[in-house]
Every structure is written in C-alpha cells, then in structure tokens.
Design a protein around this nucleic acid. Structure first.
Lengths: 235, 235
DNA sequence: CTCGCGAATATGTCTATACATATTGAACCG
DNA sequence: CGGTTCAATATGTATAGACATATTCGCGAG
C-alpha cells in the first residue's frame, strides 16, 4: 500500500476541501510551506497542487497563492452512460432488439438529415434496449455513410449500433440534449407504457474531425430512469 | 502566444487521438522517443503524458507503453441553468411568485426529510418562475434550518430562494438528478398544461461540509425546455 | 494624497539525474 | 517441451536547482 507522496498530499488536501474544513475562498499553504510540512521537494508539492487545480478543486494565482474554488452550480459533469454497461452493471441481462434497418438518402426536406448525410446515404436504425426481459429504452439512430462507410456492412442485430460505433469510430465532438416528451402510440406500445406517459429523451449528435457521424435519440420511461450529475465526494 | 512545451505536446497528441489518426489501442511513442522528437527532457514529456492519462485519453502500462484508451462512458459538462439568468438572457422579463412558505418539522415518515432537517425544522417553499408572463418552472424546495438558521427570517418573495441561498450559503457538494414525470392535476394547473403532460424534473441536493443544506425539485414543461451538454473543442 | 515603480513572493516551466517498479520476452535449465 | 530466472524496457516517483512570469505591496516622488 505504498501511496506515492504527491498523491498523499493531494488526497489530504482534497479531504480538507471536501469536508468543508477549508471552505471556498480559503487560502491553502504555499508550496514552500507544504514542502516544509511534508519534508519533500517543491516539484512533488507542485505535482499535487497542479492536479488539484486541473481537477477544479483549487484555483492558483501567481504571487497570490492557491485558493479553494467556489463550485459553480451551472456546470456539473454528467455521465451519459453506455446503456449496455449500465444494465449489466446492475446485474440484469441485456439484449438489443433491432426493429428496423434501412439504407436511404437523406430526406431533402430535412435540413438536419441532409447535413448529417453529406454526399452519401444514411443508415437508419430503430432498436429496443431490453433489460431483464423488459423494455428499457427505444433508440432511433441515423449514421452517415459518408463518414462511416463500413456501417453499410455492419450487422447491428449482433452488436448494438452504439457499441459498434464506439469500436469503429472515435468521436471528437458531441452534443447531448435532454428533454421530456409524452409517448406517442407506437412508442408507448414498444415500451409497454400508456399513451402520453412521460419519457426522458436524450438526443446526441457526434462529429469526427468536424464531420457529422451519427445522431441518436433515446427514449427512456421517465420514472424508471434518472440521469445523475454530481459534484462532491462521490468517488 | 507562448504555449508551454508540455502543453503543446499534450495538445498535439490529443489532436492525433481525437482526429482518429491514432485509433483506440494505438501505441503512442515511448517517452524517450518523444523526448528526442521534441528535444526536451523526459520530465516534460512525462508531464504531458500523465495529464493525458489523467484525462482518460490514454492508458499507460509499465514496460508495455502508452495506448490510446477506448472511450467508455460519455462524460460531458452539463449546464444546469440558473433560471433567472437563463430567462433574462433571452430578453424576457423574469418574476418569481412565492406560492407557499411554511416552517415545520420533518415528516418522521419521510427518511429523506428527516435526514435533511437534522436536529432542526425545515423551511418548505413552493414558487413559480415566470418568464414573460407565462409560467416557466415550478419549484418545490426544502431548506434545513439546522444548516441555515438565517433562512427563518429571509423574505423569499423579494429574493428567490435559489439566489438567496447562493448568496448566503456556499456549498461544497451537490447532486443533480434528471428525470421525466407526468404532470399531476395541481402542477398542471399552475403550469397551464394538461394533466399528464410530460415534465422535465431536475432535483438537486446540496451539502455543506457533509451537512445537508437544501433540496429542490424544479419542473419544466418538457417540450419547451432542453438541457444541453457539449463535449468538444468548444472551450 | 495619489500615482508609478521596484521589490518581494508564489506559481509556472524546464532540466538533468537517480532510483523504483511492473512487465515482457528471451535465454536457460530441468 | 515447459517452467523459471533474468535482463531489458517503459513508466513512476522524487530531488535540487534554475529561470520565467504574474501579481501584490509598499515606498518614494510628484
């Protein structure tokens, strides 16, 4: 259990901050003070403090010192999970049912589709994520064949498109939109809900080096699924 | 434009990864190779690579080398809005209508309330955020008087509780949960929607030094409001 | 009394070196 | 042929020193 010194310094200071012993705005000891306190070189202290700064726990200003950051409510880190990983982590069996798959050109009246498709066709998929035999989420996905020509030959019944894309196409940019919608008749039936039931809608677009790759819209039964964002000692 | 060298190395390698030039699993040059390539010392290269490893872009293994990581979860920064700022930024008038305010002990049957209240009472508030004369969000909030005794005397009709708390109580930990719910009758009436309409529910709890401070649940008309999260070079 | 400038301070960057440690691959031996 | 040992390799940790740079504070000049 030989914890490196720079890590120990990091952990101890992180503990002081998270416990509230050092409130936001508190000034931490200077590097030379810490250096004396821990009996180590400045580089070691610096490594610990730089890591805390990178993690957003402290703010460092030359000549002034290192200060405990005041957390911003407005931006927290949200983990949008890989559905398969999420389900198997709960110990439930996971399955993906491919409901429809086709290849077609972009609808010229849908600017968004045209933008995604570029010069090529689209692969259009609809599938159902199933957890322990019960419908968990409905997924509608568009994939640009201009960006991912291999998608034309992929077997999305064998490997869900999310996982397939993760293995074949590293993303560079992504945007997620979260909203709530009522279930339409067709959707309600697939998810075994009443028409109009509240659904959590997560829509994500990803790009690779500026080129659109895919757009996916996932619908979760609202009360059965939460997205969680944390700032704090949950770790 | 004097970018530090370790940062430049970091940025260049990050670019190679994000562009897809180095796919997941690709082995990066060793530190001594990079050291020769950039004409700098090993510590500088090490700082760059350690940072990439901490950011989860690469995985490093002794003797084996550094490898491009395969992305697992999609972790993004989510902007959870300050409602007032959001509305005024759109150029609409903002108002907060305090619908109910009371002080009472925690409901002993509600473990969550008991936990929040601690040894003291709770302030229980319900209010409506109004944008341009139309209901925008319904807010139900509990404040622990054990953590924030000044809340007993605050005038939440004059200053919305979110803003008041931000000014009076720095928090150290927060957790946000996002889900979708159907509107109950009372809620539907206040938000001028049909019963059962899909609502986006944002529930946030905050703590200060491990002590619960407040819990708030905000309900937004689902289709009228999106939360947006981005990941990418927009920095 | 105010403004500007220099000195003090704390962080930021970088080097050269040293030793530790995990892992791999190959040589060696039973 | 199989297993063990050992050396090579790549990262991990740490040191001591040097210089750069931003910021603040206080002092002195006007």
């Amino acid at each position: 259990m030989t914890v490196p010194l720079h890590q120990r310094i990091r952990d101890e200071i992180e503990g002081l901050i998270r416990s509230g012993a050092w409130p936001p705005g508190h000034r931490a000891p200077s590097e030379s003070e810490l250096m004396a306190q821990y009996g180590c070189s400045r580089m070691t202290v610096n490594k610990a403090m730089s890591a805390l700064a990178q993690a957003g726990l402290i703010v460092r200003r030359r000549r002034a010192g290192s200060f405990v950051a005041r957390p911003k409510v407005h931006s927290t880190v949200l983990d949008i999970p890989d559905i398969q990983a999420e389900i198997t982590a709960r110990g439930e069996t996971y399955a993906f049912v491919l409901l429809a798959a086709e290849r077609r050109p972009a609808d010229p009246d849908d600017g968004d589709e045209v933008d995604l498709a570029g010069e090529g066709d689209l692969v259009v998929l609809r599938g159902l994520h199933v957890a322990g035999g019960r419908p968990f989420a409905l997924e509608d996905r568009l994939i640009s064949l201009a960006a991912v020509p291999e998608a034309a030959a992929a077997d999305f019944a064998a490997e869900p498109p999310g996982a397939w894309l993760l293995h074949h196409v590293p993303w560079t940019e992504a945007e997620s939109r979260i909203s709530a919608v009522g279930a339409e008749a067709a959707v309600a039936e697939l998810l075994a809900l009443d028409v109009g039931a509240a659904l959590l809608a997560v829509e994500r677009r990803t790009w690779r080096a500026g080129e659109p790759v895919t757009r996916v819209r996932q619908l979760f039964p609202g009360e059965a699924y939460d997205l969680v964002a944390r700032f704090g000692p949950a770790r």
